[in-house]
Design a protein around this nucleic acid. Structure first.
Lengths: 342, 342
DNA sequence: CTGTTAGCGCATTCAA
DNA sequence: TTGAATGCGCTAACAG
């Protein structure tokens, strides 16, 4: 049997309460006594049973997740990941309230942040939008000691405690390398479809993609980026038009959402005997099908479940004043081709 | 506050014990009473606190992991993943004993299995070797109701309860697609370096790789596979020799361990102005460096941590007689290039 | 068939 | 400065 508080109390010749005081670094213990207890802990190799501790504490962590009412597949998955995390949360004693805000609406997001700050909350996660009102709201929260983490999309120059999302420049470079190598010696132009370049992660992906492309694949020229606003019909139009206007376009990097429209445009092109090497983001039923049918060549993915779990771990650590191990919270970029689909 | 057993006992007008019996599907409850309790559970939206339940049960799951004393990086990581899992095991009440066996020794493995079966164990995980004594040992365990899962390497035609490892044919196909696409229109031959083709996972990878290659990239011919026994110096010799003898060799798939020797051979070749597109398995400090220096183009990886955690989840489920959700336990093949390294 | 009762390992009043 | 006692939510003897 593993040692319990009783064992170390007996070993140190003190009571449970004293042991507890030492363990939780609370005042009211003589230096001598504390030493005895610490030695007993060391000697018996005691480690506290977190589950039992939480049970006794009865403490729970009411977190708030502010999510945009976007109807794309990725946001749906993110939302479902949050719900699942909440369901599993009984053990960890976390409780999550989801707050919906209109997409791309900085004012609404800022308001939601402030409102969440007024409610009983142990920490807040948000999909950030780069805007001053949002930065101000975040500042007011962190100043009151409420932990704040950005999820999926970061907020630069802000006081947020942590960013739980992928390294977007790395994603852009990954796309560049794969596209360049798949195209090999071919020369031509490359189309880029973004949601909006005023969104930080899209901008970051694009910059890194361009830079890597220019550096390593001089035979491939990048066309001016299209902005599809993550909207299917708009994306479809833009891509169709680009294909028509650029007969030398042999590659396409779609770095935002709105894959449905893109897929429609590619299907149409294929019927006309036109194929371009395509890399898109986020695995969903649609993009998966596109991968299997060869319309997409690669899908880069961020695992929404990982991001949510990481956000929760960090919020909890911050709420408890504990440090976070950065390396462990790093979110990877998954590469999928048709052969390694999960 | 969430409802507790007390609340539902009150609501149903019965005692705690009865509630407990219903919840754990134990006998000795009248159908009528059971219904009342179930309705109360439904009505109050009760979900049991697993942590508290485990605490009260005091049950622990003493598992045994049988690992080969291989000194390669992957096995080291696997071992460390097991140790970490054990450390986290306090909450889940799992305790893991690691048993070491000589690598590639079927008799020793079989003996270790039987010995583990004699000790107090709630389940056993093993890195399997395809051999009849092993199959027999596994059978004797499963017949006694001890859950057995294979880890990393499977045991076909056996009574093991589950395989926690990657889909090796899928890995082989992934390698074929990437190699073929990276080489593009080039024609030439492809070398294959295996550990031993008598190991099931290596054989599976090779078969799928060959098949996909022939089907989709007819311009690339596969050379007879080399068997490096996961040994560095042997691998180095084999690869150097193959490079010398096959001037038209433009690609290489290393599907086993022993990357150090391979890297040495590739470095030597590079100094002589020779480069081949290379895909290897398992991310380690060595393979990572090779990726960064361009000696490796792609590394396929199985996440040892995932495999271990999955094995534990399955063992626990089997020990409790619960079903496992196959889709959730599927181990992915990670693709790494220099740009998406974690 | 059902209820009472005593813990699991820990945190926390309230006394001493 | 320290200790005894009580309870968190649940399970499992042991009675009835």
């Amino acid at each position: 049997m593993r040692p319990t508080v009783h064992d170390i109390a007996a070993e140190a010749g003190v009571s449970l309460a004293t042991v507890d005081r030492v363990m939780n670094a609370r005042p009211g213990v003589r230096e001598k006594t504390r030493l005895k207890v610490e030695q007993a802990i060391e000697k018996l190799g005691y480690v506290r049973d977190v589950a039992a501790a939480n049970l006794a504490k009865g403490r729970s962590y009411p977190f708030t997740f502010i999510l945009p009412c976007n109807d794309n597949a990725f946001m749906a998955e993110l939302r479902s990941a949050v719900i699942q995390a909440d369901a599993r949360g009984r053990v960890e004693r976390t409780r999550i309230t989801i707050v919906d805000v209109p997409a791309f609406d900085a004012e609404a997001l800022a308001d939601a942040l402030l409102a969440a700050g007024e409610s009983e909350t142990a920490g807040i996660a948000l999909v950030a939008i780069e805007a001053d009102p949002v930065r101000a709201a975040v500042r007011s929260l962190t100043e009151r000691g409420i932990p704040v983490v950005t999820l999926v999309s970061d907020l630069e120059d802000s006081t947020r405690d942590h960013y739980a999302g992928v390294d977007n420049p790395s994603a852009g470079r990954t796309a560049a390398t794969l596209l360049g190598r798949f195209l090999g010696p071919q020369k031509g132009t490359i189309g880029v479809l973004a949601g909006s370049l005023s969104v930080r992660d899209h901008q970051n992906r694009f910059d890194a993609f361009s830079e890597a492309m220019e550096a390593h694949f001089p035979g491939l020229a990048i066309l001016p980026p299209m902005e599809g606003r993550d909207d299917a019909s708009r994306a479809r139009q833009l891509v169709s038009k680009a294909l028509a206007e650029n007969p030398d376009m042999i590659g396409l990097y779609s770095l935002g959402a709105g894959n449905r429209g893109l897929i429609a445009a590619l299907e149409e092109a294929r019927e006309n005997g036109r194929e371009v090497v395509t890399i898109a983001h986020e695995l969903s039923p649609h993009s998966r099908a596109a991968l299997e049918s060869g319309l997409f060549d690669v899908v880069l993915n961020q695992d929404a479940g990982h991001e949510v779990r990481s956000a929760i771990r960090v919020l909890k650590a911050k709420a408890d004043g504990l440090p976070v191990i950065a390396a462990q919270e790093r979110i990877r970029i998954d590469i999928f081709i048709k052969d390694n689909l999960p």
